[in-house]
């Protein structure tokens, strides 16, 4: 079993099914991702941990065809925004790299995918969205 390490601590729970780790404002009630101390919408300092699950609906999608700065993984890869039931639109990778195979509104599962292998031989993983099997 290859060891796995999240691309950033505190961003998601690497479980089946995974969860995104965000927060919720105790003043205005709105959710945010990634976790912040202060509410990004109303600036209240009274926020608490919250976790968000899929599936969500695809809101926008494309594919990245050339490696952007600092990226060591494979290209092309899918890239998009998924609207989660909690009312958050989340930017993330998509497991489908062919935009013609996706369409807006498609049901997308929250998943965790490998990005690349680090210097210690571990799989660096991140959250992503995968089209739900029809």
């Amino acid at each position: 079993m290859v060891a796995r390490v999240p691309v950033r601590q505190g961003l998601f729970v690497d479980a089946d099914p995974p969860l995104l780790l965000g927060g919720r404002c105790r003043s205005c009630g709105r959710p945010h991702f990634a976790r912040q101390e202060n509410c990004p919408y109303c600036s209240s300092a009274h926020t608490e941990d919250d976790a968000f699950s899929g599936p969500g609906r695809l809101w926008a999608h494309t594919a990245v065809t050339a490696a952007p700065p600092g990226y060591q993984g494979e290209v092309p890869y899918g890239f998009g925004v998924v609207e989660l039931p909690v009312g958050l639109r989340v930017v993330g990778r998509l497991t489908e790299a062919d935009p013609s195979r996706l369409s807006i509104g498609r049901l997308m599962d929250l998943v965790v995918v490998p990005l690349h292998v680090d210097d210690e031989g571990r799989h660096v993983v991140t959250y992503a969205f995968a089209p739900e099997a029809i």
């Binding site: 691309v7 494309t62 990245v64 490696a67 952007p68 700065p69 600092g70 990226y71 060591q72 993984g73 890869y77 890239f79 930017v91 993330g92 990778r93 990005l115 690349h116 660096v124 991140t126």
Partner: peptide, 10 residues
Amino acid sequence: EEAGLAATPA
């Protein structure tokens, strides 16, 4: 950047 999310044209 590591996760491929720094893709400005995307």
